[in-house]
Design a protein around this nucleic acid. Structure first.
Lengths: 205, 205
DNA sequence: TATTTGATAGTTTTGTTAAAAAAGTCAGGA
DNA sequence: TCCTGACTTTTTTAACAAAACTATCAAATA
């Protein structure tokens, strides 16, 4: 028996999927509600039946992506025993996440200064998720005697994620303090792995 | 005997100083050439006798600031024996530099995407200066056996400076990927000191 | 009653133009 | 060579209309 609520959820899912494809392809400002509706062969008005407005639709898609990202992170991190591997896996997954959805984040790149609160909440949730998983990894690593005991593992992880975030290309330093260019992501990724190496050693016994 | 060139330099210096004060107080776009001239009790046309245009004047002031910053760094870093202290001194000096000139950098903050090439060159020079001093510190530290031998000290320092740059406040992670707010600078500074602590340990024997 | 739509209302973006303000030039004076 | 007042050119700002898009709603469908 498929309830009404189920049906609505299915429909919503379909809309989210179509919206995601459009946003990914054209970016937020260049996709119109008409196009999304067109891709689904439904009327624009119906989109407004399921979602209050365009930005809420975008936020819903973002929320879904964030959830999937965290789930993927969670599934695999728990199985990792080595602390360094945990960080490497985090960085790799994060890297793929950014690369695969690069255009989707146009909205965030362009509105950096004035993002809706919900987006910051999602970003905050992702960060908290990452910090949670990695600080657990630190705690258990400390318990195994692999690294020194750590007073506040969350603080350490938070700092490390900031540091990784700061890694940029081309010695420009301040330059491109904003979102990195797509073509630089791989170089950044390599540098991050080196940073992990040194940072982990800095925590060791 | 004061030569013509000397006299010109003195005049230029006066202009740079007055321009610096105006830029620091009002930011680039809100200070007019008339105001700068007025502060010096000279005509606007004279400014154009000494400097080709407004942006070149701003760039000249920036260049002067950068030079002073690097000189200060150089004077004191050479006397420091401990590697960690060298990094701490760098971060402290950098912190003061940003705090003291915060409004002056309005121009850079607002035009991040489209800065004149000369500004990037100055930023690059600052970075190279920092990397030079700190990689020397690393090399001599390695020679003393304080840390492990390092293949490419410049690469390590570059990475470290990127990481320090990435340190932000409020767990927001991505948020304020742009220039940090003035009121956050102190918290950032504290985090950076912690990062230095761990990073240096990671390099140690 | 839940879902859907065409028509339409309301808002934002884009393009145009004119006035104001600031940047930048120059002939001529000390 | 240094300096200025008057002048020209460029940029910014404001106002406004047209176009594009978002968002709403009464009515149709199932």
């Amino acid at each position: 028996m498929s309830s009404v609520a189920d049906q609505q959820d299915i429909k919503k899912e379909k809309i989210l999927e179509a919206a995601y494809q459009q946003f990914l392809h054209y970016g937020y400002s260049k996709t119109t509600m008409n196009e999304i509706a067109g891709a689904l062969s439904m009327s624009k008005a119906l989109l407004y039946y399921y979602f209050p407005d365009k930005s809420q639709l975008y936020i819903a898609v973002t929320r879904k992506l964030a959830l999937e990202y965290l789930q993927q992170l969670e599934e695999n991190t728990s199985g990792i025993v080595n602390l360094k591997d945990a960080f490497i896996y985090q960085v790799n997954t994060h890297h793929d996440f950014i690369v695969n959805n690069y255009n989707f984040f146009d909205f965030i790149r362009l509105n950096e200064q004035n993002l809706p609160e919900e987006i910051w909440q999602i970003i905050e949730q992702i960060r908290q998720g990452e910090v949670g998983l990695l600080s657990d990894a630190i705690t258990s690593s400390a318990a195994r005697g692999e690294i020194k005991p750590v007073n506040n593992p969350r603080e350490i992880v938070d700092l490390m994620l900031d540091a990784l975030q700061g890694v940029r290309v081309g010695a420009k330093g301040l330059k491109k303090n904003t979102f990195p260019k797509k073509e630089h992501l791989d170089e950044i990724h390599k540098k991050r792995l080196l940073l992990i190496d040194i940072f982990i050693k800095g925590l060791m016994n």
